[in-house]
Computed example of a mutant assay.
Amino acid sequence: MNYIGIDYGLSKTGISISDSVLKVATIKDTVKTENLINYLKKLYKNGDIFIVGLPISMSGRYSKQTYETIDFCLKLKNLFNTDILLIDERLTTQRSFSMTKNFLNAKKAKKNKDQNSALLILQRFLDNPYSSIKLEEKKPYKLENIEYNSILINDIIIKNSNIYNKSDILAKNPYVFWWYFKRNKRSTTLFDDLKNSYDVLITKDNKLDESNITFQKIIVVGD
């Protein structure tokens, strides 16, 4: 089994690789993203796992680039029927460029930055597998309309647009973020973006960790 590291970009994508025994990432290639799927079909062997860099802003927020990467990963997961593990890629591109330009000129360093980023993403996973997030589809929940207007949804998918369109959404899970973004609904990963109090919290585990936000009512959904 191999781990395949990916630094996904809209125009170019960096690729790295490592086996599961030595656990040392090596550079594989930089490919045009339009050719990426065909390239991976030739590279992939049954049982391989993809390690993909997850774009996150320095403040810790997700973005349109995060959405594009998750959207690609879901296609990859369905095509190869294998695990996709996401790694926070903050500072990876900057670090790979700085590392490379020490022994290459700036033009060559820029050309190689994508594959070097893929190498750093994969090595970060190999050094600490628990730092990754496994990309998994989440079940959407259907609720009846809620009369309150001040609502916070905590990292779950509420299918009723009459509810989520009048709610603030905390979406730390990448798939939850992707689901709402696809429907043009903004969410956040940060408590600082939220209000100090809400009428209702909709959650799955009856709590909101590391938060001083207050609620009048808690609605707990479950399987």
Rank of each mutant, 00 (worst) to 15 (best):
residue 50 F to S: 00
residue 50 F to E: 00
residue 50 F to C: 01
residue 51 I to G: 01
residue 51 I to P: 00
residue 51 I to K: 01
residue 51 I to Q: 00
residue 52 V to W: 00
residue 53 G to A: 01
residue 53 G to W: 00
residue 54 L to F: 01
residue 56 I to V: 15
residue 57 S to W: 07
residue 57 S to H: 09
residue 58 M to T: 09
residue 60 G to L: 06
residue 64 K to D: 14
residue 65 Q to R: 10
residue 65 Q to A: 10
residue 66 T to L: 11
residue 66 T to K: 12
residue 68 E to G: 12
residue 69 T to Q: 05
residue 70 I to D: 08
residue 71 D to I: 05
residue 71 D to M: 11
residue 71 D to F: 09
residue 72 F to E: 12
residue 72 F to L: 15
residue 73 C to L: 13
residue 73 C to N: 12
residue 73 C to H: 07
residue 73 C to T: 09
residue 73 C to E: 09
residue 73 C to Q: 13
residue 74 L to D: 14
residue 75 K to W: 13
residue 76 L to I: 05
residue 80 F to P: 09
residue 81 N to G: 09
residue 81 N to M: 13
residue 82 T to G: 11
residue 83 D to L: 13
residue 83 D to Q: 08
residue 84 I to N: 01
residue 85 L to M: 09
residue 85 L to C: 09
residue 86 L to F: 15
residue 86 L to T: 03
residue 88 D to E: 05
residue 88 D to F: 05
residue 88 D to P: 08
residue 89 E to H: 06
residue 90 R to V: 12
residue 90 R to G: 14
residue 90 R to S: 11
residue 90 R to T: 14
residue 93 T to K: 06
residue 93 T to N: 04
residue 93 T to H: 13
residue 94 Q to K: 12
residue 95 R to Y: 10
residue 95 R to M: 11
residue 95 R to S: 14
residue 96 S to L: 02
residue 96 S to K: 03
residue 96 S to Q: 04
residue 97 F to S: 11
residue 97 F to G: 03
residue 98 S to N: 15
residue 98 S to K: 07
residue 99 M to V: 08
residue 101 K to S: 15
residue 102 N to Q: 11
residue 103 F to G: 02
residue 104 L to M: 14
residue 105 N to R: 02
residue 105 N to E: 10
residue 105 N to G: 02
residue 105 N to K: 04
residue 106 A to M: 11
residue 106 A to E: 15
residue 107 K to W: 03
residue 108 K to H: 10
residue 109 A to W: 01
residue 109 A to L: 02
residue 111 K to E: 12
residue 112 N to L: 03
residue 113 K to V: 14
residue 114 D to M: 04
residue 116 N to G: 15
residue 116 N to F: 14
residue 118 A to S: 15
residue 119 L to M: 10
residue 119 L to V: 12
residue 120 L to V: 07
residue 121 I to S: 02
residue 121 I to D: 02
residue 122 L to Y: 06
residue 123 Q to V: 04
residue 124 R to A: 09
residue 124 R to F: 08
residue 125 F to N: 07
residue 125 F to P: 02
residue 126 L to P: 11
